[in-house]
Design a protein around this nucleic acid. Structure first.
Lengths: 355, 355
DNA sequence: GATTAGCACTCCGATGGTTTGAGTGCTAAA
DNA sequence: TTTAGCACTCAAACCATCGGAGTGCTAATC
């Protein structure tokens, strides 16, 4: 970080950014002088502004306009200038209410969190549910429903159990099912789909004799349980909030925002690629998903027991209420993680689709 | 429907609407005369246009502009004038490819269908997953994981099995678990949450003696499995496609579209309220979700074995390529239903969230 | 030397008048 | 009944003007 900024420059820079964040307009020397924050004449402030512009912290849309923060300016603000956000009593209450209200719908909690954070911050929000990368079945359990159908229950982790219905072409007895169950538990427990070769599969099938034909649908189910559904999932909430910010009040800007948000793949890569337990802040062109460089992306991974289970965040103009958003994202993701941990509930990474 | 339209008027009306759908501009008499479709001079056409305007089928944005179809005009077009859409060979191939490609991800098929239909029609799409209204557990099954945790498996239907993890405060034996299982199967099978009174619950709890304290978390799980997750779910795909239509090229129009799409509750009500196995077409103000009356909503319920399991549809300008959209929605929803039926796979109406 | 008042300058954006052209309605001729 | 012709209308594009906010620079002041 550049620390060759005089205290006065820092003050002025902060005042400019605060004012710009608040009103969205370029801010001029007169406004700052009148604001009371800075006990200097507009002329002096002008000189400082000129220097800050020179140094790259501020931009001038055109000669006779005020200054707006540059990306570098925002960056410096976020890293060094910003004050921590004082949540109002009402906000704290709301946050808590919303966190506790949701206990019932834990499964959807990340989706809900997206909605929630969009409401709290008034920016469009993203909510990501991460899928675990690679896993194995810890235990198989079969359950006969009727002679032709049985339930294949796969315990993947304490908190992730996938159930599928398998249909047999001939009637099955309880004993036969137990036999299959045993084979599955003996051979397939702890195996990743990649580790299983064709020859092993064929072997398995012949070893089971008459029941061999069950193997193929079962393997398909296992594959699906472990793999196919492991796509991560990104949801966007509250796009319409873009409209509240004049910087997106042109169709062109809106287009680039909407296009960015529909490019879920890229967003996912960014979010899942980000490590660390901090709030990530990508300002302007730092946000690779947005070609236009006019938006800021803020998000935080939700981590439970060291495993990332998802992420929530916010997308808005570069002129974002950073301290509020950062603190909200931070608190909410912690809140969710804590809640999940406390209740020993992990959102289920795979839905069942019995087949 | 009004049938007091001369054949010539019908032709002209159709030509106007076709042209308007194609280009989006108001269409004038000259254009129609030049188009070759109609072998009349512009003056004659003008007279007919004036009459059609008088009758309410066409509108004039201002005195010296061409005509655009009114809602009544579109309605008449959809009901009587429109030709059925001839899908090109390429489109047919794509449709089939996409339908077969997806077999693996059946669980997500409706979400995928939304994306798909948005791509095919080039309009924003909605995808609804309906949740069954009320159901009961058909069978309980408990599975001991370790002395303190067991799996509560609830078979709700052949295709809907919900699994939750329950934690006990004291160690459990296999036999105790069997006992609980028996009680559950005897008392709670076939019971809707509404039918269960507090006194019955207390009775249950005391009847189980030492294991009574398990009842409360178990009941909570049951409630969640049957109820809490029964919300329907609506997804929107491809909002950015609005930008391709000049009628939404103003920020104001975009705002009203985005606001409509974020009001998922209302959309859901409309979609779930619509009965019948036909494609539903709500033109302009017929689409109650859109205050502005500038959009058309087209959707169709996906029905498998008489049960609606979801819906897919499209939202776009009133000037919509009705024949293409209607045929696409129709085909795709049938395709999906057929696929689900064929594979005996019903998307799971409830995800598990082990607790 | 730092700060401030004053002033000329720049440039965006709003305002308003003019022009252009597409499309109309009407009338008169075919 | 259809068509050609013409005067009329009105939105949209164009353009020139003007005001004002904000600047940079200079000279005066603390």
């Amino acid at each position: 970080m550049e620390h060759n900024l005089s205290e006065r420059k820092r003050q002025i820079l902060k005042a400019v950014i605060d004012a710009h964040i608040a009103c969205g307009e370029p801010v001029g020397s007169k406004l700052l002088a009148a604001g009371g924050q800075i006990a200097l004449s507009s002329a002096t402030i002008r000189n400082e502004l000129a220097e800050l512009t020179e140094m790259g912290y501020l931009l001038q849309p055109h000669t006779s306009a005020g200054r707006i923060p540059s990306e570098q300016g925002y960056r410096f603000y976020v890293d060094s200038l910003m004050e921590s956000y004082d949540r109002t009593a009402t906000e704290i209450r709301e946050l808590n209410e919303l966190l506790t209200q949701r206990t019932r719908q834990l499964d959807r909690i990340i989706d809900d969190a997206g909605r929630l954070i969009s409401t709290l911050t008034n920016y469009p929000a993203i909510a990501v549910r991460s899928r675990p990368r690679s896993q194995t079945v810890r235990r198989f359990n079969l359950m006969l429903m009727d002679p032709y159908d049985f339930l294949l229950i796969m315990v993947i982790s304490e908190t992730n159990v996938v159930t599928k219905t398998v249909r047999s072409q001939f009637p099955l007895t309880e004993e036969e099912l137990r036999a299959v169950e045993q084979v599955l538990n003996r051979v397939l427990v702890g195996k990743e789909p990649d580790q299983l070769t064709l020859s092993q599969m064929m072997e398995l099938e012949t070893a089971m004799g008459r029941l061999g034909s069950l193997m193929s649908p079962i393997l398909k189910c296992i594959y699906e349980a472990l793999r196919a559904d492991n796509r991560s999932d990104l949801r966007v909430e509250g796009v319409d909030r873009f409209l509240e910010y004049p910087e997106f009040a042109s169709v062109e800007k809106l287009r680039s925002m909407l296009e960015m948000l529909s490019n879920k793949q890229e967003l996912l890569e960014i979010v899942e690629g980000a490590q660390g337990d901090d709030v990530n802040v990508y300002i302007g062109s730092e946000n690779a998903a947005d070609q236009s460089g006019d938006s800021t992306l803020i998000f935080k991974t939700i981590t439970v027991d060291g495993r990332p289970i998802g992420a929530i965040g916010v997308i808005g103009p570069c002129r974002m209420d950073y301290s509020k958003v950062i603190s909200t994202v931070e608190q909410l993701s912690r809140g969710i993680a804590g809640m999940i941990r406390a209740q020993r509930m992990l959102p289920d990474p795979g839905k069942k689709d019995p087949s």
